[in-house]
Design a protein around this nucleic acid. Structure first.
Length: 807
RNA sequence: GCUCCUGUGGCGGAAUUGGUAUACGCGCUGGCCUUAGAAGCCAGUUCCCGCAAGGGAUUAGAGGUUCGAGUCCUCUCAGGAGCACCA
């Protein structure tokens, strides 16, 4: 009887006792660092989505150990964050307590899955001995001018009562509570990610990541090449600089637009005819949430600056100046030139306000006519109505026109600096002190960590709860020793997770954030697995921090994660995303209890391709459970009986084929097809043993158990022991296959007439094409079709098919 | 709106370079075993016609390239993801 409860408990206890999965400290062997994105220990406990990624890395790690690599496979907790704090506000339980409890639950659940983590390397980002180094990291960036405080329009979530990074605003809403985000002018801390924009973009080429993630990052960084062109104001010393990627359309300019926040309006000496209207427009824009600004994207709004005109740098004509919120202050120069004929947004604006539309680029192909009504022609072409440039190609004109009007070629990025201060409690305090006399001061490294105070009222008021802690607030200035004030904001939790992978090799080191020797050995991460939702958050931040640390000579590499794979979402049985409100959530504990961890692991891997979204189906679990039971019976009942016949070649061949298939599928994360091959293998073995009463060579019986071990480690260990091996199979060499046994001695040739399958025949393996052809045309089913016709051509594909083209 | 991905039986999904479409699993049907059930084992299961042999159709739809297309190209439809006024 296959008793999963007994077997799984036994082996989990034994692995723990024997520290089976401890990463080796000898560094002679080749290493592999296999990492999961560490979880936020939420109060909901483990979701069936977690074991999907964890099982994949576990299979991969176990496979690599058997392949002889030194493997580091750690787990930890991304423990700071809002839910624990919100729970504290509601229930009055301190976040540290909630977090501790949740971690215990997560750990128990993860352990029940038989995952081969080295728990001696466990990390908790909310522990002072960890966040001390997060603060250290902040100070290193501060020293290098990569962290700065600035008053700027920032994303404000009134639900969470805190500012948010751009990356945390999704469709104009807070990614956490879905409150509409508004812009506020606040003094906040930023990290200078933009300084790394070009490297973050260029180095994508050097890493093995899913294309979709690379593209998302490319998109987010948003490099565009263009030029800044100045428009002098009429009767004023001031000028408006616009950024454009299409200087070739300069002659099509019919107006200029300023962002409502543009500083020119304040500096303008010339009276604006409709100043009240303008001021009202600016005020109304500021009140809009990002959502509202986006929702009305089709309908443009704006007001003209009456009495203000600019001089076109080429034609010297007067150009009206408008102010409109479709022009963004935070990108380029905060001003654009309006070319309605060749930009969709400008066209919409021009039509709404009845501004002239001047066509200056004609497509080269005559058939693509410009439709004036809906779309602007944004493609390349030949310039028209563009003075001396008419007749030139738009590509060539770009450079020449910029030079002629003394413009400046530049590159712009959509990427903004990373806003890292949060007005919340449950995070790492920003280690900065403000002194009236000395100004902003870094906390000396020897004073780290700046501990989170415990005497706080969690209620968010828009000001950090830390500001209301007396014990925390007052401090002496490290420079002059006089009374000073601590920074009361905390760091974005993404800051904690942007460097944790560097600490795993030496998580308990008290003197340094990471020890150089083990860092050099283990890093970078060879395989990183997690959800795709971090495409531009965690993954971009971690890359940035790594590059900053590389420049500071703390790490000898520039990319933290050499390979990345994303697990697909596991959907509910109804095909919808699992959620409490839909009531379609599956609890992994129930599955582990009823069917066993090995079954759950197998099922999640068998569901479908690793990176695809797949619906859960409880019925299908029985399939993999039956597979394990068949394996169990095969070894404990059938194989131990004496066989009447010697091993059959066919059976031996299948096992060798399976070794090849599984060996190839694991590193490419094709676990579903690896399992299908293992099932075929068991079916074949069972057939030969049970029906045909044939023996299976012992070494192949053992090979199969070793192949199964990464997927279903508990049952594999039990059978390994059953076969007489006292030690764990964790470090047994991975089975190898004999290439000579992979080829069959016969093959089936499909016979096609004009490409349609008409017959098939089995021939011994080396058979000459001539013989196959001769045999084929003699077959009844073939004769029938070729009678009275001539064979024009014969196509033969070795060992596969022969196709007669007849007429 | 832009960018990208995906459409294969009743269901989850297989399919090297274009070369037997539907592997493996679920479900279903029949049989064996059993007092009965469960489990297990055996056989079958893309659809249509046919007792069968066999024939025809079939990878969202329509075209195309090819001896041959799930796979390559063009268009259309459907679903999903990311970005979203970035000039």
């Amino acid at each position: 009887m296959y008793d999963h409860r007994k077997i799984e408990k036994k082996w989990q206890a034994r692995w723990e006792k024997e520290r089976t999965f401890q990463a080796p400290s000898d560094t002679k062997r080749e290493k592999r660092y296999v990492l999961d994105m560490f979880p936020y220990p939420s109060s909901n406990g483990l979701h069936v989505g977690h074991p999907e990624g964890y099982t994949a890395t576990d299979i991969y790690s176990r496979f690599l150990r058997m392949k002889g690599y030194a493997v580091l496979h750690p787990m930890g907790w991304d423990a700071f964050g809002l839910p624990a704090e919100n729970f504290a506000i509601k229930k009055g339980v301190h976040p540290a307590e909630t977090t501790k409890k949740n971690i215990a639950t997560f750990k128990k659940q993860i352990r029940s899955l038989g995952l081969s983590y080295d728990w001696s390397k466990e990390i908790d980002t909310s522990a002072p001995d960890y966040y001390r180094w997060t603060q250290w990291l902040f100070l290193e960036l501060y020293k290098r001018d990569l962290a700065y405080k600035r008053k700027a329009p920032v994303n404000w979530c009134s639900g969470c009562q805190t500012v948010l990074a751009n990356e945390q605003v999704v469709e104009g809403e807070c990614e956490r509570c879905h409150t509409g985000v508004i812009q506020k002018d606040l003094e906040q801390w930023f990290l200078k990610v933009t300084a790394y924009a070009d490297r973050l973009l260029a180095d994508l080429a050097s890493i093995d990541w899913p294309d979709s993630i690379k593209r998302a990052q490319e998109h987010w960084i948003g490099k565009s090449e263009g030029a800044i062109i100045d428009f002098r104001l009429n009767n004023s010393p001031l000028k408006i600089s616009v950024f454009t990627t299409r200087p070739d359309t300069l002659y099509g300019v019919s107006y200029l637009v300023l962002a409502p926040e543009h500083e020119l309006i304040k500096n303008l000496k010339t009276p604006i005819g409709n100043i009240r209207e303008v001021k009202e427009y600016i005020a109304s824009t500021r009140k809009k949430t990002d959502m509202e600004r986006q929702r009305v994207a089709q309908k443009k709004s704006g007001v003209p600056l009456k009495g203000i005109t600019a001089i076109h740098p080429a034609t010297k004509e007067e150009v009206p100046v408008w102010i409109a919120d479709y022009c963004l202050a935070s990108y380029g120069t905060g001003a654009v030139m309006g070319v309605p004929a060749h930009d969709d947004r400008d066209l919409a604006f021009a039509k709404q306000f009845k501004l002239p539309i001047k066509i200056v680029v004609m497509p080269e192909k005559a058939d693509s006519v410009i439709k004036r009504s809906h779309k602007a022609y944004t493609g390349p072409g030949i310039l028209v109505s563009s003075g001396e440039w008419s007749g030139m190609s738009s590509e060539e004109a770009k450079k020449k026109i910029v030079a002629a009007v003394k413009g400046q070629q530049t590159i712009q990025y959509k990427l903004r600096d990373w806003l890292i201060s949060r007005q919340r409690y449950w995070g790492a305090p920003i280690p900065i002190i403000y002194c009236e006399a000395c100004g902003e001061q870094a906390v000396p490294e020897s004073d780290l960590p700046v501990l989170l105070p415990t005497d706080v009222d969690f209620k968010p008021t828009g000001e950090s709860p830390l500001a209301r802690s007396k014990s925390f607030h007052t401090v002496l200035c490290p420079a002059c020793g006089k009374k000073a004030r601590r920074e009361s904001d905390t760091l974005d939790t993404f800051m904690c997770s942007s460097w944790y992978y560097l600490r795993y090799p030496n998580p308990h080191s008290g003197d340094v954030p990471f020890e150089q020797e083990s860092l050099r050995y283990w890093l970078p991460v060879d395989m990183y697995v997690g959800g795709a939702e971090h495409a531009v958050l965690h993954l971009l931040y971690a890359r940035f921090i790594t590059k900053a640390l590389e420049d500071a000579e703390f790490v000898p590499f520039s990319e933290p994660f050499t390979r990345l794979r994303n697990q697909g979402l596991i959907l509910g049985e109804d095909g919808e995303k699992m959620s409490k409100s839909r009531g379609n959530v599956v609890n992994p504990d129930d599955i582990v209890d009823a069917y066993g961890a090995d079954t759950l692991r197998l099922y999640e891997m068998f569901m479908g391709p690793f990176e695809d979204a797949k619906p859960w189906n409880t019925n299908n679990i029985m399939g993999v459970r039956r597979f394990l039971e068949r394996v169990w019976r095969l070894y404990t009942e059938h194989l131990k009986k004496p066989a009447a016949h010697p091993p059959a070649d066919a059976c031996i061949r299948v096992i060798h084929k399976t070794i090849k298939k599984v060996t190839e599928d694991i590193p490419s994360f094709r676990f579903n097809t690896a399992l299908a091959a293992l099932m075929v293998c068991v079916n074949t073995m069972t057939d030969h043993v049970l029906q045909k009463n044939e023996a299976v060579p012992t070494y192949l019986q053992e090979s199969f158990i070793l192949l199964l071990a990464p997927f279903a480690p508990h049952i594999a260990e039990e059978l390994w022991e059953y076969m007489g091996h006292p030690a764990t199979l964790t470090y047994e060499p991975w089975p190898s296959y004999d290439t000579a046994l992979l080829t069959e001695d016969t093959c089936t040739i499909t016979i096609q007439i004009n490409g349609t399958r008409r017959d098939s025949m089995t021939v011994p393996v080396p058979t000459e094409e001539e013989d196959i052809r001769a045999q084929a045309i003699e077959r009844e089913n073939v004769k029938k079709w070729i009678a009275g016709k001539t064979i024009k051509k014969t196509i033969y594909v070795e060992k596969r098919l022969i196709n007669f083209v007849i007429h």
